[in-house]
Design a protein around this nucleic acid. Structure first.
Length: 237
DNA sequence: AACGTCCGCAACCGCACCGTC
DNA sequence: CGACGGTGCGGTTGCGGACGT
């Protein structure tokens, strides 16, 4: 299989500057990520697509929780590591706001030693906690049909921890956990497609195909998130 | 103050998987 | 059905700050 390594010529590596972060956030907020390989070119970044994706997923994306881990989070990680091994993405799915990379780092730096030194006291207690997390984190109620999604309600207030939170506004409308969702999901797409904004002079506008791709992705992502938050229901779309 | 060591974290690399043609 | 391209994931590296001597 032919891999698609990052181009070497003229592609920056290493730490991201605040300027690069701002460009990436502005572009994704405006157009979403319709194609990671093409994105840096359109966003005016001298980075490879993988690097942009990683930076967005692990650092710039809205609602990423940073800072120290709670005891409960540590226990969940240790317990799930016992069950799943190094399936960091699956472990991360149980800890809203934490990224797989972050959890992986936390494991290698802190928890690995802890896990060696002590047994987890009660598997039952942790399992109970996991179940509570699934029910409590979002407080979502919803009807069974996608056409009835406008009835979705939520009391969850997501934590936005990054400095660029002020730039990430429309993105909230794609997040079913946002207070403003889901109605703004549709208006956001219309806005992306139709309305000129102050940012338009900075980035080339996506083609019709790119927009459709973005539209499909966002729709898919939106329902995917919704289904993840309703693990006990057998909804399909 | 200067130097060496340790540690945490961001980022890179390469492989696996999946969808499309 | 295989080739190809894009994305996701896990392992690993290396930088930079904290800390100790």
């Amino acid at each position: 299989m032919v891999r698609t390594p990052c181009e070497r010529n003229g592609v920056r590596k290493g730490s991201w500057t605040s300027e690069e972060d701002e460009k990436l956030v502005k572009y994704i907020t405006r157009y979403g990520y319709w194609n990671w390989q093409q994105l840096p070119k359109f966003a005016g970044l001298a980075r490879c697509g993988k690097s942009c994706r990683l930076r967005w997923m692990n650092y710039l994306k809205p609602h990423i929780k940073r800072g120290s881990y709670t005891k409960e989070e540590d226990e969940i990680i240790i317990k799930m590591h016992q069950e799943l091994g190094t399936k960091w993405s699956r472990i991360a799915a149980k800890l809203p706001g934490r990224t797989d990379n972050d959890i992986k780092n936390h494991w290698h730096t802190t928890l690995k030693k802890q896990a060696k030194n002590k047994h987890v006291k009660s598997n039952e207690l942790v399992s109970k906690k996991i179940n509570e997390e699934q029910v409590d984190t979002k407080g979502v109620s919803c009807t069974s049909s996608p056409s009835e999604l406008s009835t979705l309600t939520t009391s969850y207030v997501p934590q936005v921890s990054h400095d660029y939170r002020s730039l990430i506004t429309n993105q909230d409308s794609l997040d079913p956990t946002s207070k403003r969702s889901p109605g703004n999901f549709w208006s956001h797409l219309c806005m992306v497609k139709n309305s000129p904004t102050e940012n338009d002079h900075q980035f080339p506008k996506p083609s019709e195909e790119q927009f459709i791709f973005y539209y499909d992705n966002k729709l898919d992502e939106y329902f995917h998130q919704l289904m993840q938050e309703l693990p006990d229901k057998n909804y399909s779309y």
